[in-house]
Structure formats: C-alpha cells, structure tokens
Simulated scan of single mutants.
Amino acid sequence: MIGTMEYADILDHSELVSRMVLKSDIMESYQKSLRALNEDEEAQRLIMAFKDIKVHYEDVQRFGRYHPDYSDIMKKVRAAKREMDMNDKVAAFKIAERNLQKLLDEISEYVAKSVSDDIKAPKDGAALTDGGCGCGSGSSGCGCKAS
C-alpha cells in the first residue's frame, strides 16, 4: 500500500498537471469555442433539431428496417447531422474538443507508460467514439482502441 506521504505527493503532482491543462492554450481554445457555440442561436437551433430527430431515430432503431418510417427518419437524421456539423461554431467546437481529448489521452498514456508498458491508456480519442467500450482490456472481443 502506498504510504500516506507518497499518496499526498502523487495527489499534489496530479493537481499540478490538472492546473497546467486548465491553463493551456488547448483548454483556452476549447472554452472559447464552447462559449461561442452556446451563445450562437443558429448553432443551438441546429443542435436542438438534431436532438429532436434523434429521438425519432432511436424509436425507429428498435424495429430497424421494418419500421414504416425507417427510410424517412434515416434521411432526416443524416441531413440534420450534416447541417449541424457544417455550422462553423459546431465544427470549431468539435476540433477544439478533439484537441483537448488528444492532450488528455497523451497525458494518460505518458503516465501509464511511466509506470509500466503493460498498462493500457485511452488512444485516438477513444472516449469520444461510440465504437469502444473503454474497458482498457484491449481483448479481441472488445471494441476498445486501448490496445
């Protein structure tokens, strides 16, 4: 077990790293793009339109191709997502979000590798993808990108 002073030292160092991340240009860019996104009425309208159609999409997904509105909803979801993604504020936010995630992934990987080469850390924005489960096992039956 880690001694109390060692544990406190580790926590102090982790707080230092978090303060450095919070003061970084990458975090500043993220916060600036998030503010711009939240303040832009058009972007918010597009986000809400996408969320609304996504509710219908999830309902249709329960039945798949057999749902009578399957084709119509699939087209509407793709169109709403494309329109939302083409908005400058949304696109800028997604880029800033990916950059911040990349920084956090690199920090996690650095910490993991400094402990042992066998420790897994998130890679390639695995936290932002829907494909991986994030379990860190990296087994062949898992969709994680941790291996």
Rank of each mutant, 00 (worst) to 15 (best):
R19Y: 01
Q101P: 14
D25N: 11
A8R: 09
D9V: 05
S140F: 10
K75R: 13
R98L: 01
I95N: 08
A121N: 01
V21P: 03
M27F: 10
R62G: 12
K113M: 06
V21L: 08
C144H: 06
M86D: 14
G138E: 03
R78D: 15
K51P: 03
A112C: 01
Y30Q: 04
I119C: 06
E83Q: 12
L16G: 07
N87G: 10
Y30K: 04
G125S: 00
I53R: 09
I47A: 10
L128S: 05
F63G: 09
I119G: 07
K113S: 07
D88M: 02
P68F: 05
F50E: 08
E42S: 13
K145Q: 11
A80D: 02
I47F: 12
E83M: 07
A92P: 12
R82S: 10
S137H: 06
G141W: 12
D52R: 14
S139V: 02
L46I: 09
K32S: 11
L34I: 09
P122F: 04
K51I: 04
A121L: 00
D130V: 03
G125Q: 03
N38P: 11
M1P: 15
E106C: 11
D12T: 12
Q101V: 08
V115F: 07
D88F: 11
M27G: 00
V77L: 14
E106A: 15
E39T: 12
I95L: 02
I95R: 12
M84H: 08
K32E: 10
D85C: 08
D88Q: 13
H67K: 05
S24P: 00
L16E: 04
L46W: 02
F93C: 04
L128I: 01
K54M: 10
K89D: 01
Q61K: 15
D124Q: 15
E28G: 13
L37Q: 03
Y57G: 13
K54N: 13
Y30E: 03
A146E: 02
A43Y: 06
S14W: 02
S116P: 07
N38R: 15
A96E: 05
V17K: 04
E41F: 08
T4M: 12
R78V: 06
S24Q: 01
R35K: 08
L103Y: 00
E58A: 11
A80H: 02
C135L: 04
K120N: 02
F93L: 07
T4P: 05
D59F: 14
